[in-house]
Amino acid sequence: MPRSFLAAVLALPLLLLTPEVSAEDDPSLLSFGVGWWDLVAGDDDQADFRLEYRHGQRFLHVVKPWAGLEVTTAGAVWGGGGLLVDIYFGRRIVLTGSTGVGGFYEGDGKDLGSAVEFRSTIELGYRFDDRSRLSLAFGHLSNAGIGDSNPGTEVLTLYYHLPIDRLFD
């Protein structure tokens, strides 16, 4: 069973069971991340940098779209988008599950087996009074078996999420 399929199955309860979704206005976010690429396998360790847009409006009451760009120090680039779910535990703690698909260029780094790669991520964050967040995420990137090989990679990322409306204050 491909790891990405297993990750999607494990993330499915996040889409269906939402303990307490904050009733407060949830803004669109500009997210900056820095991380450790290939954390688990460790055969191609690199720094990983992310820039993402996370829309504030919910669809189907809990699902929100996102789009992003990811670049590693070995020149790998992933760009894509998908869906996410924010689950609030009280007003401060936010658990986010996301999945997406995008295009991948390996640069001088790890060959993930396809130009199309799927990304699934789980993150735990703290929401500040100004609605910005600091979170730690663990994600998996792979081609879900559509390529000749599917080594996949895991990434540990520290995010800072800035409400876009704060950019124009």
Rank of each mutant, 00 (worst) to 15 (best):
M1V: 13
R3D: 11
A8P: 07
V9S: 08
L10H: 05
L10P: 07
L10M: 14
L10Q: 07
L14F: 12
L14C: 15
S22M: 08
A23C: 04
E24M: 04
E24F: 03
S28D: 10
S31Y: 00
S31R: 10
G33N: 04
V34A: 15
L39A: 10
A41D: 13
G42Q: 01
F49K: 02
F49D: 05
L51C: 03
G56S: 04
V63L: 13
V63Y: 01
G68I: 10
L69C: 01
E70H: 02
E70I: 05
A76L: 07
A76K: 03
A76G: 11
G79Q: 08
L84F: 13
V85F: 02
V85P: 05
V85Q: 03
D86S: 11
I87L: 13
I87N: 15
Y88C: 08
Y88M: 06
F89H: 13
I93T: 13
L95Y: 04
T96D: 03
G97F: 02
S98I: 04
T99M: 14
V101A: 13
V101W: 06
G102P: 07
F104T: 08
F104H: 03
F104S: 05
E106F: 01
G107C: 06
G109Q: 05
G113Y: 01
S114Y: 00
A115E: 08
A115C: 02
A115Q: 08
S120R: 10
E123N: 11
L124Q: 03
Y126F: 09
Y126V: 13
R131Q: 15
R133I: 04
R133L: 10
R133M: 14
L134T: 08
L136G: 10
L136M: 13
A137R: 02
F138C: 05
G139M: 04
H140I: 11
H140P: 09
L141S: 09
S142F: 04
G145K: 08
G145I: 12
G147D: 06
N150C: 05
P151Y: 00
E154M: 05
E154Y: 02
V155W: 00
L156C: 04
L156V: 15
H161F: 00
L167W: 00
F168P: 00
D169S: 13
